[in-house]
């Protein structure tokens, strides 16, 4: 056991976790807000829009702070974000396609 203790060179720094807990409270708050909206607002396109905006905000905090992407090189950030923007486009296109399949079947 003794040699394991010696492997540290010098003092261990104090934890610096303020930003982590701040992100945690933001994520919890946004989730609580989603619940509130789910039970107080009638289901319509506005509600869906609010949910999508809140989800993207949560995703931005997870990817930006927890996964540290915000602090990476700009090229790496765009290499990850840009393909996902096109995926969002495909999602929108396929939802509209689903709507037209529905009207065709009526």
């Amino acid at each position: 056991m003794a040699e394991i203790q010696h492997s540290q060179d010098g003092e261990i720094a104090k934890p610096n976790t303020a930003i982590i807990w701040k992100t945690f409270w933001i994520l919890s708050g946004l989730t609580a807000l989603e619940f509130l909206i789910a039970f107080t607002m009638p289901a319509n396109m506005l509600r869906v829009g609010i949910f999508i905006i809140l989800t993207i905000a949560k995703a931005a905090y997870i990817v930006g702070e927890f996964m540290h992407l915000r602090h990476e090189v700009k090229f790496l950030i765009w290499a990850i974000i840009l393909p996902m923007i096109f995926v969002g486009w495909l999602l929108l296109a396929m939802i509209l396609e689903g709507g037209s399949i529905f009207t065709m079947l009526q």
């Binding site: 996902m84 995926v87 396929m94 939802i95 689903g98 709507g99 399949i101 529905f102």
Partner: peptide
């Protein structure tokens, strides 16, 4: 991309 494929299928099937 794999998860997107599943969620996109969900969107299409649900709205049809």
């Amino acid at each position: 991309f794999s998860f997107s494929a599943l969620l996109i299928s969900y969107g299409l099937i649900r709205y049809s």
